[in-house]
């Protein structure tokens, strides 16, 4: 399931809670992390997020550094091969939360501004637009994707108990490609584990129940 993720950096507890309660009104969203001060921010941030909402007054060398870490530059994410498969090819967008009068620095691109006196509806509208743009750009559409014929081939082999390496050799593709297919299968079906995929394969007659466990012989 596609989930838009948020990180909130804001000192005020009330504002953080308010933002979270609004974000949670939008389906398939999640606030994965919230920070209230710079101390917290010093902890290594190796998480990934679609959006960062930050109070511009908290911008300093330290927070900037953290944001840069969370936001891979487009060039970087395009060439890092192991990321291209997952959802991380997308760029993190930075949104400000402040008074209308606050002047934004130009150190990076702000994708939107939320003001403290915005109504709930206008905040929802801004966020929905951003999430909507992102979906159409990156996931194409949210219509449930069918698994492809090739993916069924892979799924069949997973269910039969073959390892990534074995599947790669069998189908004359790289292990990396197998991993990519597996990720896509999991995303489409919502099933992650091998036993789970096996049941799916049997229920859908991709393999026969008597075939399981044969591969190792």
């Amino acid at each position: 399931m596609y989930k838009a993720t948020f990180i909130i950096i804001e000192k005020s507890y009330l504002i953080r809670k308010g933002l979270i309660s609004i974000i949670e009104k939008i389906p398939n969203t999640q606030v994965i992390q919230q920070f209230d001060n710079e101390d917290d921010l010093k902890t290594p941030a190796n998480f990934e997020s679609d959006f960062i909402i930050i109070n511009p007054n908290l911008l300093n060398a330290n927070t900037l550094n953290i944001i840069k870490k969370i936001t891979p530059s487009p060039a970087l994410s395009a060439c890092s091969a192991d990321r291209s498969a997952g959802r991380r090819a997308r760029k993190t967008q930075v949104i400000s939360i402040s008074e209308k009068s606050t002047v934004l620095t130009k150190e990076f691109e702000w994708t939107a501004q939320i003001y403290l006196d915005d109504t709930q509806n206008s905040i929802l509208k801004k966020l929905n637009t951003l999430i909507g743009n992102r979906e159409t750009k990156n996931v194409k559409s949210e219509v449930p994707e069918e698994i492809s014929k090739r993916e069924i081939d892979i799924l069949k082999n997973i269910a039969l108990g073959y390892s990534n390496k074995e599947i790669a050799d069998k189908l004359f593709i790289s292990t990396h490609t197998v991993v990519t297919h597996r990720k896509n299968i999991t995303r489409k079906l919502g099933i992650k584990t091998v036993p789970g995929l096996t049941i799916y394969a049997i229920l859908n007659k991709i393999i026969d129940i008597n075939d399981t466990g044969k591969s190792k012989s």
């Binding site: 079906l189 919502g190 992650k192 584990t193 036993p195 789970g196």
Partner: peptide, 16 residues
């Protein structure tokens, strides 16, 4: 808990 999530999905989405 990963497997429980799978089981849940199988029952909700795929089990006749």
């Amino acid at each position: 808990e990963e497997k429980l999530l799978d089981l849940r999905n199988i029952i909700i989405k795929y089990l006749p």
